[in-house]
Structure formats: C-alpha cells, structure tokens
C-alpha cells in the first residue's frame, strides 16, 4: 500500500480578483501526498498556505479563483468538478478542521446535530444510527460522558473540547484526506499537546492522510513526516522532516530556523530575525519573492525565478544557490542531529 498517491497538486495557480487588481496568492504550486502520510505546510501569513487548502477543498470565496493547474484526488481532477459534485466529496472524502473552533461551529445547533448532519448526508444512516455514530466519534476523540455531551451546545464546551468536536465531525465519515488549517493555534499549549497526540493517534487508527498547515515548526516536527515550506505563493523548499531541519537548502528555511528561540538548548543566543517584510502579491517581484530579504541574494535572484533544484530524490529547493555556478555556503541554523 506504500506510495499510493492520494492527492496530486500540479501547477496550481489561484488569484483573487479585487478592485485594486489581481492578487496572485498562489503562483504555481505542485506537491503530492501518499496514503496515510502526514505532510506539513509551513509559512507565514500571506504565503499562500491556507489558500492552497481552500483551493483543494473547492472553498474559495469570491473574488478568489483557481486560474490554472490540476488537483488530482484519487485520480479525479477536483478543479473540473461542479459545486454539486464537490459537495459529495467535501466532508465525506476530504474533511477540514479550521483554526478557530469557536466560529466554525454553529451556536444554535447541538454538537450532536452538527456531527449527525454530515453522517446522515453522506452515509445515509437514519437519525438513531447517526446519533449512535456521533456518540462513538465523541468517545473516540476523548470527550468524557459522550452520551450526555452530544446534546450540549457549543458554548457549553471549552476551547479544547470544541476542537475535539470539530475533529470528531471531520472524521465521522472516515475521510481519506484531512486538512487541518492551524488546528491548535487558538489553543493553550497543554490543550495543544492533547490535540496533537489525538491527531497522531487517529492517523494510525484510521489511516487518514493529513495536511497540517501551521506557522509553528515545533508542531510539524512532531506530527509530520514531510514538510513543504511556502513563501510568497510558491513552494521554497520541500523535503522530509529530517531534511528540512537538519539539511535545509533554502535561505528562507535557514531564516525560519534561526529566528525561533530553542527551549531545549541551554546557551542563550541573540535571535537572528529575517529583516524586512513579505512581498506584496499584487505586484509580485520578478525574481525570487524572498530575494529582497535574503542575505545571500545575488544579482540573478532579483531578475529571474529559478527552477527547482533536486537536492536528492525527495528534497527540492527553489534557490539559485543550488546552481552549480553559485558559491557553496555552509550555514549553521543551530539545529543539529544527535541532540536527543
């Protein structure tokens, strides 16, 4: 069953057509996801990580539109599906968890009703069976006394419990793909640890593939086996989790690793920030989007976007520094093997 591709995104371009002009949020993104695999998409606000997931889900709102590219899910191109066809896939085969569990639950329906809605729609169970299933799902995600809690309204749940209920809802139809967009950002660290543990556990139990979108490198190091680093609407670097942390090949990845303080190391060093701020995607730069903030930028970086350089089979970097004519650089990011 290994290496069976469940999702294949090819040359995806998504833009928002606003009154001030076309905002090119995603400018050609390609990646794959295997069955049962968890990948992380890392990037800062405006990098295009959430727009990528909304494009896959077919949930882009006006004025956003996929303008080019293919999204193959189990061999079918999702960009060619009608809204109606997408409705039978969404929530059933692809499910999503959002950042804010407060605003993504409907306050006037009970938790049970909201979980049952998806089950009844997609699995054709009757009301009684759906309720049983909802209780079973709440139990699976660790809600105490689920047979009582199923009749509670969202305001009677705490933040962590709401996110658990969202996960229960997302997993109720046993989706083959789960997209989690910053699922723990609004939660406290002790609750975050509970939710991440739950997601790892469920991935093994149900064999769901996961796309985890986050800005927190600590979260992906824990949950994901592969990482996609996005910046300015493009994938800057992609590789296994170990590649990205121990053998990063892109200056943006170096910058990210250097700018975060490390709790597990004893020496206190001054942080190394990435100077400047992200590019304006209304007028994306001609060359590499990171060039303006990159301490290693060369003349060509400002003028022309590089092709991907394969570092090895599963590791690629969008950077001129990987060219054979570029100077070789040794950069210490402070993250090394063998600290465990």
């Amino acid at each position: 069953m290994k290496n069976e591709k469940i999702l294949e995104v090819k040359g995806l371009r998504t833009s928002f057509f606003t009154h001030v002009g076309e905002i090119k949020a995603i400018r050609g993104v390609s990646f794959n996801l295997d069955k049962g695999e968890a990948i992380g998409i890392v990037g800062e606000s405006g990098s295009g990580k959430s727009v990528t997931s909304l494009s896959v889900m077919g949930l882009l709102q006006y004025p956003g539109r996929v303008i080019d590219g293919e999204i193959h899910f189990k061999g079918q191109d999702l960009t060619k599906k009608s809204d109606k066809e997408m409705q039978s896939i969404r929530g059933n085969e692809i499910a999503m968890i959002f950042q804010d569990p407060m605003t993504s639950l409907n306050p006037v329906y009970t938790i049970g009703d909201q979980i049952m809605e998806a089950i009844r729609r997609h699995q054709g169970l009757n009301k009684h069976e759906a309720r049983e299933k909802a209780i079973e799902m709440l139990k699976l995600v660790g809600i105490p006394s689920p047979e009582k809690r199923v009749d509670n309204y969202p305001h009677e749940f705490s933040g962590g419990m709401r996110q658990r209920a969202m996960i229960a809802m997302a997993l109720s139809c046993e989706p083959s793909l789960l997209i989690a967009d910053e699922p723990t950002t609004a939660l406290d660290v002790t609750i975050q640890a509970q939710i991440l543990e739950l997601m790892k556990d469920l991935k093994d139990k149900i064999n769901t593939s996961i796309i985890l979108i986050t800005h927190d490198l600590g979260v992906v190091a824990d949950v994901c086996s592969r990482i996609v680093v996005m910046y300015g609407g493009l994938i800057m670097e992609e590789g296994s989790t170990d590649d990205i942390f121990y053998n990063p090949k892109h200056p943006y990845t170096w910058g990210l690793l250097k700018s975060i303080p490390r709790l597990d190391l004893n020496e206190k060093k001054r942080l190394v920030p990435i100077e400047g701020s992200p590019p304006d995607l209304l007028k994306p730069p001609k060359g590499c989007p990171f060039a303006a903030r990159c301490p290693y930028a060369m003349k060509i970086c400002m003028e022309q976007l590089p092709e991907y350089y394969q570092v090895d089979e599963n590791h690629r970097s969008l950077c001129w520094l990987q060219d054979e004519n570029a100077p070789r650089l040794e950069v210490d990011t402070g993250v090394q093997r063998g600290r465990a």
Binding site: P144, S158, G159, G160, M161, V189, T190, I191, Q192, A193, Q194, L196, E197, D216, L217, G218, V219, A221, D222, T241, D242, F245, Y246, L257, I260, R262, L263, D264, V335, R337, G338, R339, A340
Partner: peptide, 24 residues
C-alpha cells in the same frame, strides 16, 4: 507546561517525554 511545548527538532521531538494533562 514545559513538556507540552513542541520542540522544533524532529529527533528531540520524537524522544520527548510528554506529560499530557487531562481535562481543562
């Protein structure tokens, strides 16, 4: 609290002994 912080280092993260608090 300290053990629940995810460490941005995959090897350390895998070997981390987490104390998961129950409840809220």
């Amino acid at each position: 609290l300290l053990s629940s912080i995810p460490i941005p280092d995959p090897e350390v993260s895998r070997s981390q002994q987490r104390i998961i608090l129950e409840g809220d």
